[in-house]
Computed example of a mutant assay.
Amino acid sequence: MSMARVKICGITRIEDALAAAQAGADAIGLVFHAASPRAVSIEQARAIVQALPPFVTSVGLFVDASEETIRRVLEQVPLDMLQFHGDEPEAFCQRFVRPYLKAVRVRAGDDLDALAGRWPGASGILLDSYKPGVPGGTGETFDWSMIPAQRNWTLVLAGGLQADNVRQAIDLTTPWAVDVSGGVEAARGIKDVAKINAFIQEVKRV
């Protein structure tokens, strides 16, 4: 198994994006959802993306945003990838000529193969924990044993990950990538450099 890739989500500051890149993150996530404590403006996001070094993927996260809203962001922020956390159907996700991740909030009894099959064009299916009224960033894990060992879709694992459980998560689920936000924060939207480094070092040790 190759090393899992790492995405540090909920970046709101240039210094946090650079710390993630320096630590070895493969991608950073920018939240364009006003209700989130980690939301960024177009101006913030543009400055962060412009500061990134080469080969760090910028991902824009949206929750049931309108096509007009997403296109307005893309006109001003050169995002590499999109991430959809709402009820967006496959046809909508495909409209923007960008690779995309589709987030699925996992509930007990879900057939994850069937759910993943609803977005055949997705570069990855991001599994997060379900919490009523919260589209993501719950800081809670879900039952990883629900994830099929054999699957024909690309798993990005999220939900309650931090340095002290990410190795176990990778061992159990063999994801292509792991996605962390709250698990590497000093406060909502403010990352902790030591936690970022510890998280990525744990991933590398698997």
Rank of each mutant, 00 (worst) to 15 (best):
V6D: 01
K7C: 00
I8P: 02
C9I: 05
G10F: 04
I11D: 02
I11L: 09
I11R: 03
T12S: 07
I14V: 12
I14T: 15
E15H: 13
A20R: 05
Q22V: 15
I28C: 03
I28D: 00
G29R: 03
F32M: 04
A34H: 12
A35D: 14
A35R: 15
A35M: 07
S36H: 00
R38C: 05
V40L: 06
I42F: 07
E43Q: 12
Q44S: 09
R46T: 11
I48M: 12
V49E: 03
V49K: 04
V56Q: 00
V56Y: 01
S58W: 02
A65L: 06
I70M: 14
R71G: 11
R71S: 13
L74H: 02
L74N: 01
E75N: 14
V77R: 01
V77T: 00
V77Q: 00
D80R: 00
F84G: 01
D87E: 13
D87S: 14
E88L: 14
E88S: 06
E90T: 03
F92C: 03
Q94N: 15
V97C: 12
P99D: 07
P99Y: 09
K102C: 11
A103P: 00
V104N: 02
V106Q: 02
A108C: 12
A108M: 13
G109K: 06
G109R: 06
D110G: 05
D110E: 08
D111M: 04
L112M: 15
D113L: 15
A114Y: 10
L115F: 00
A116E: 03
R118I: 07
P120S: 05
P120Q: 11
P120M: 10
A122D: 00
G124F: 01
Y130S: 01
Y130R: 04
K131Y: 07
G136P: 02
G137S: 08
G139F: 05
T141W: 14
F142L: 07
S145G: 09
M146G: 12
I147L: 08
A149F: 14
W153V: 08
T154F: 06
V156C: 10
L157C: 11
L157T: 09
A158I: 03
A158H: 06
G159P: 03
L161G: 04
Q162H: 15
A163Q: 12
R167L: 12
Q168F: 08
Q168G: 14
I170F: 12
T174Q: 14
W176M: 14
V178K: 15
D179G: 06
V180K: 05
S181E: 00
G182L: 03
G183E: 02
G183W: 03
G183I: 00
G183N: 00
V184S: 07
E185R: 08
A187L: 14
A187H: 07
I190R: 15
I200D: 02
I200H: 03
K204N: 11
K204I: 11
V206H: 15
